[in-house]
């Protein structure tokens, strides 16, 4: 097994008196998709915010290539190669594809104070990058981003992250607002990102989507990793049950609460596979 790119080691996070995450251990490897599952309020968003530099852990550490790192800001995290793509793509609806693709790193031509934005080059690179991800409907870099479908906007955001050298891709419910066909688009792009050797964290509520791309699954319950398993180790029914809060989730939850009550609030260790 390859060494993880990004790891969380015994990470805790509290906001004032409220403990949100307990002893989280997660590994992310290149070319692997980790599906982060869990109900609303289980702490998925907090995990993402730690990884993308919005929050810092209260204790524990984040390791990148085995070395401890702290992210001062989301910008700092993205300089380390961690790109977060939110539900709506995080792009600018009223800007053209070329312009939004190169926001902050616009290509220019000319000299001295008369450097002008190179629209042709920006459009050509942006369109090529998106098309390489299989979105062949995009041909014109002058189109406004807001005119693209939800799936196309996600794809644009992912293509942008990959183009600018992201190694870790955090996808926060990318398929939540999409129809079946659009979601398939996005899943295909997740697979393409995986094929290119990126480590992907994929957050979703839809089991089918998780099963389609996931190599590795972590279930969060009440801020702790309640289950950690690989593809094929659990059936779809079991995963659905875990995600939907069915019988096995209820028993897990009771188990964790019991354990935490008798162990100073520490969650039980998760069996390594």
């Amino acid at each position: 097994m390859t060494a993880p790119i990004l790891s969380l080691r015994n990470v805790n996070k509290s906001f004032g008196p409220i403990d949100v995450l307990h002893d989280i251990n997660i590994d992310l490897r290149a070319g692997e998709v980790l599906c982060l599952l869990g109900d609303n309020g289980a702490g998925k968003s907090t995990v993402i915010r730690l990884l993308s530099g919005v929050h810092k852990p209260s204790s524990g550490e984040i390791l990148m290539d085995g070395k401890p790192v702290t992210f001062a800001s989301p910008r700092d995290a993205s300089e380390h190669g961690i790109a977060t793509v939110h539900q709506f793509g995080g792009t600018f609806p009223l800007m053209s594809i070329g312009r939004s693709f190169f926001v902050g790193v616009e290509p220019t031509k000319g000299w001295g104070p008369f450097k002008v934005y190179d629209r042709k080059k920006a459009n050509a690179i942006a369109v090529k990058a998106v098309r390489e991800f299989g979105i062949t409907r995009i041909e014109d870099g002058d189109r406004l981003v807001g005119g693209l479908s939800g799936g196309e906007r996600q794809s644009l955001a992912i293509a942008r992250a990959v183009h600018f050298g992201a190694r870790v891709l955090i996808l926060d419910e990318p398929t939540a607002a999409l129809g079946v066909k659009q979601a398939t688009h996005v899943l295909r792009i997740v697979n393409e990102a995986k094929r290119r050797g990126l480590a992907v964290i994929f957050i979703t509520h839809q089991v089918m989507h998780a099963m389609a791309v996931g190599d590795h699954f972590a279930v969060l319950i009440r801020g702790a990793v309640a289950a950690d398993f690989k593809k094929g180790e659990k059936t779809r029914e079991e995963i659905t049950d875990l995600m939907a809060g069915g019988a096995s989730m209820a028993s897990l939850e009771a188990e964790i609460e019991g354990y935490m009550a008798s162990h100073d609030g520490h969650p039980p260790p998760v069996a390594a596979h």
Partner: peptide, 8 residues
């Protein structure tokens, strides 16, 4: 290129 920043 700065115009792009204002729009963004």
């Amino acid at each position: 290129r700065y115009g792009n920043w204002i729009f963004a």
